[in-house]
Amino acid sequence: MRAEEMATEYGPGLRWHALDHEGRALCGRPLNSKSILTLVSALDREDYCRRCMKDVAAAIRASLVGAPSDAQHGERRA
Rank of each mutant, 00 (worst) to 15 (best):
L37K: 14
V65E: 04
P68K: 10
H73R: 05
C52I: 03
T38E: 10
D55M: 05
E46Q: 07
I60T: 07
R45P: 01
S41K: 04
S33L: 15
A59R: 07
A25M: 10
E75W: 00
E22Y: 14
A67W: 08
M6N: 11
P68V: 08
L31I: 11
M1W: 09
G66Q: 11
E5T: 05
W16Y: 14
M53R: 05
R61P: 03
L39F: 03
H21M: 14
E75I: 07
L37R: 15
V65R: 00
I36S: 14
V56Q: 02
S35G: 12
A58L: 10
D44P: 01
L64S: 03
T38Q: 09
S63I: 00
L64Q: 01
L37C: 09
G28M: 09
C52M: 05
Y48D: 01
R77F: 08
A67R: 12
A3R: 00
V56K: 02
A59W: 02
R77H: 07
A3M: 02
A18S: 14
L37A: 12
E22K: 13
M53I: 14
R2N: 04
I36F: 13
S35A: 14
A57M: 10
E46W: 01
L43R: 01
H73W: 04
Y48T: 01
H17M: 07
R24W: 15
G74S: 09
A25H: 02
A25C: 13
Q72T: 12
M1L: 13
L43G: 00
A25G: 08
A62H: 14
I60Y: 03
C49V: 00
R24P: 02
D44Y: 06
A42W: 03
A3H: 00
A18Y: 04
L39Y: 04
A57V: 03
D55V: 00
G11H: 07
R77N: 04
R50E: 05
C27L: 15
S33P: 11
V40F: 06
E22P: 04
A58H: 13
D70G: 10
L43V: 01
A18C: 13
S63D: 12
I60K: 04
A59L: 05
L39T: 02
P12S: 15
A71T: 00
T8I: 13
A7N: 11
A7Y: 01
A3S: 08
M53N: 01
V56H: 01
D47C: 06
G28S: 08
S35D: 15
A59Y: 04
Y10P: 01
A62D: 13
H73G: 12
S35T: 05
P68G: 10
G28K: 06
A58E: 12
W16I: 00
S35H: 11
S69P: 05
K34D: 10
D47H: 07
M1P: 08
A62S: 06
Y48P: 01
E22V: 15
G66V: 00
M6V: 11
G74H: 08
V40M: 05
H21R: 15
P30H: 05
V65I: 11
P68I: 08
R77W: 10
S41P: 03
R76G: 10
G28N: 07
P12C: 14
H73M: 06
P30I: 06
R45K: 13
P68E: 08
C27D: 03
A18H: 08
R45I: 00
A67Q: 11
I36G: 11
S69M: 09
M53C: 05
L64R: 01
